[in-house]
């Protein structure tokens, strides 16, 4: 069987921040009533994480849940387990007005780290990324320059960024240009 690689094959850029395309990540888009007990249980069973508060993520050692909209979660699971966990999720929600779809191969995931990560992202999105306003565990679904993206902050104050696979190269280039050496703004 051929080896699965991600869209940019884990490309890296090192400047005032470190940009890495993270390789394949299992992702399921789940839409439904986030307050329903059945959906909450199904999402927790699939990931080991509890349904997050609005604009937040919850991460466990088996996966995670990202709050994307009042009726939408992005379910993070290991890539190799997407189909089994998706089937379970769909079975658990068969009687509900809910939808779960595998979007793993339609997305790209980046890691943005280093002391200037906040300001690199702040150059690209209309979000307050000051330490006072944006803290670990928070998520924003917004835009990076001209394309849609979502990002959240991990416990070590780095960012995970998710965008459509079709614009992965564009987002990698954006992040790399915003992180080029000598481009510190020091405004945050």
């Amino acid at each position: 069987m051929s080896k699965v690689i991600s869209v940019l094959n884990q490309a890296r850029f090192h400047g005032i921040a470190d940009v890495t395309e993270l390789g394949v990540q299992g992702m399921i888009s789940l839409r439904g009533d986030l307050s329903s007990a059945r959906l909450k249980t199904a999402a927790r069973t699939a990931t080991g994480a509890t349904v997050p508060e609005p604009h937040r993520v919850t991460i466990s050692d088996q996966g995670g849940l990202c709050w994307m909209a009042p009726d939408e979660l992005l379910v993070l699971v290991p890539y190799a387990e997407v189909s089994t966990r998706l089937t379970k999720l769909q079975d658990a929600l068969a009687k509900d007005h809910a939808l779960a779809v595998d979007v793993s191969d339609a997305r790209a995931v980046f890691q943005l780290g280093g002391p200037h990560a906040r300001e690199v992202l702040a150059k690209l999105s209309p979000v307050d990324l000051s330490a006072r306003a944006f803290t670990p565990g928070m998520l924003r679904r917004t835009r990076l320059a001209q394309v849609a993206a979502a990002f959240w902050m991990t416990q070590d104050e780095a960012f995970r960024i998710v965008c459509f696979r079709s614009v992965a190269q564009y987002v990698f280039d954006l992040l790399s240009i915003a992180a080029q050496d000598g481009s510190e703004v020091d405004a945050l």
Binding site: P54, H55, A69, P70, P126, R140, T142, R143
Partner: peptide, 12 residues
């Protein structure tokens, strides 16, 4: 009014 974000025009 749905997600509570103070969205600037470029996000809308």
């Amino acid at each position: 009014p749905y997600c509570g974000v103070l969205a600037d025009e470029t996000e809308l």
